[in-house]
């Protein structure tokens, strides 16, 4: 039995220490999901804390045959979707990813030269800003699919959707992103730089 399963079972039996181990393992993926969904590090911190609290309260109902990470991210995604629906009529800003302050990018072991890295960072910042334009469930599907490498079946299970609904949401989200991407060219981007120069497959 893996350490994680042991901690989950111990936590279900009431061990706060075991649950603390689970928080230690999963706080980054949960925070990242909340950050991608909500766009602000402060809101993401609160949402991540709330996600762990909800999972703590609902641990007795957790089915150990299901991957703990998927269950946890599913709680986080639903919480963020609910939060965004409630905030639908209030305006809130999206942070630009920053290396300073409350959020930190995890170091990339295969970091290329600084210029390429700078262009990539600009693209990531831009994508982060465009994500807020998407419907909250579409955004969650996209984040789970591309950041967490979830299969369409896993995304469907996490968001309580059918696989065909996930496919359709992913297509809609990607079409919308591409539409916005081509409408607003990246400032300072070289016109001769073509995306297709890097093979996709």
């Amino acid at each position: 039995m893996s350490d994680e399963k042991v901690w989950v079972i111990q936590a279900q039996q009431g061990s706060d220490e075991a649950f603390a181990q689970l928080v230690e393992i999963y706080h980054k993926p949960v925070f990242n999901l909340c950050y991608r969904m909500l766009g602000e590090s402060e809101a993401a911190e609160d949402a991540a804390q709330e996600t762990f609290l909800r999972s703590y309260q609902n641990l007795p109902r957790y089915d150990v045959s299901r991957p703990f990470g998927t269950w946890l991210l599913s709680i986080a995604a639903h919480y963020c979707i609910d939060l965004l629906r409630r905030k639908k009529f209030t305006i809130f800003s999206m942070d630009v990813e920053t290396d300073e302050g409350a959020t930190f990018e995890l170091p990339d072991a295969s970091a290329p030269d600084p210029e390429t890295e700078s262009v990539k960072k600009e693209q990531r910042d831009r994508l982060h800003l465009l994500l807020k334009e998407l419907d909250s469930t579409d955004r969650a599907a996209l984040v789970l699919r591309y950041w967490y490498d979830f299969s369409e079946v896993e995304v469907a299970q996490s968001l309580n959707l059918t696989v065909s609904a996930v496919k359709s949401r992913l297509h809609r989200a990607r079409r919308a992103l591409a539409g916005m991407w081509q409408k607003e060219p990246m400032p300072g981007m070289q016109p001769e730089r073509r995306a297709y120069e890097t093979p996709a497959f």
């Binding site: 603390a20 706080h27 993401a44 991540a48 930190f104 990539k120 950041w147 990607r174 991407w181 890097t198």
Partner: peptide, 26 residues
Amino acid sequence: SALLETEMVLRSARMIAPAEGFAARF
């Protein structure tokens, strides 16, 4: 081209970590 480029950016996006001490704050 935009569809392909956004896919590449999505795939290259990194994990964002919270400020140090998240577990203690929790």
